[in-house]
Amino acid sequence: MDLAGFLFDAFSLPFMARALAVMAVLSLVAGVVGVLVNLRGLEFISDGLTHAVFPGIAVGFVWGGQQGLFAGAMIAALVAAVTLTLIARSSVPTDAGIAVVFTAMFSVGVIVVTREADYAGQLEQLLFGRLLTVGPAEVVQTIVICGVALLVVLVTLKEQVFRAFDHTGFTAAGYRPLLLDLLLNSAIALVVVAASSAVGNLLVLAVLIVPGAVARLLTSRLWLLFPLAALFSGVAAWLGLALGYAASVDFGVDLPSGATVVLVLVAGHAVVLLARLAVDRVRGRTAR
């Protein structure tokens, strides 16, 4: 099979095309939001959010199946975003607060799911996603939720960057950081929700964090970070899906698609990191 066949053939199948559509939209938005996560150092808070959204997903799923999943996740996400913003403002050490509240919520989610008869399969789905079986309705839901997250971030982008760079200067200029923090945390939560059925609750974090980190390695030009992160994660998603398909069809190896995409993301990060180190080393030598 040639390269073009590897890259394009799989996506003539409707379920593969849907998976690609979901991953493409998700990558674009997670890339942009992820750059802000990186600039603000919100990786741990994002992890907290993925844990917090889980009980919402679980309750929604048990209560209303696939349709309930989005509704439940959405409610949990917004509650978590507000709670988290307030914890971060309080005098309690933030990391401990987040860890306590959100692992507790995750446990609640696990207990809710285990009340169901066939819980093992469902738990797996919720944690690791089911990218290849997303239906047309979920594609639309993903696009809408990602669209809202992207809008929230784009409307406040220059202010978010200002706040990330210099909190004191930002407040002194007359801005209210609380509002911006609420908006950014909500956008992160929305990405977590949108990604939940595709790559699952546990792997969302990679989609949020890896592209931003890669973009930081590739450039120190501020406004280039956002398109680079989105582009990188889009390409990784595409390659990951094509790779999973080829492994299954040509070699008979069944790879879970969400995890394959994440591994491609991480492999891409490793390549870029090594390249960066090599470049810095060469530059260091010529500078001396």
């Binding site: 600039l39 960057v161 760079f165 210099d166 200067g169 200029a173 930081r216 450039t219 120190s220 501020l222």
Partner: peptide, 11 residues
Amino acid sequence: FPITLEQVVMM
């Protein structure tokens, strides 16, 4: 932080 002097002043 990946930002130029000019961008900081623009803030």
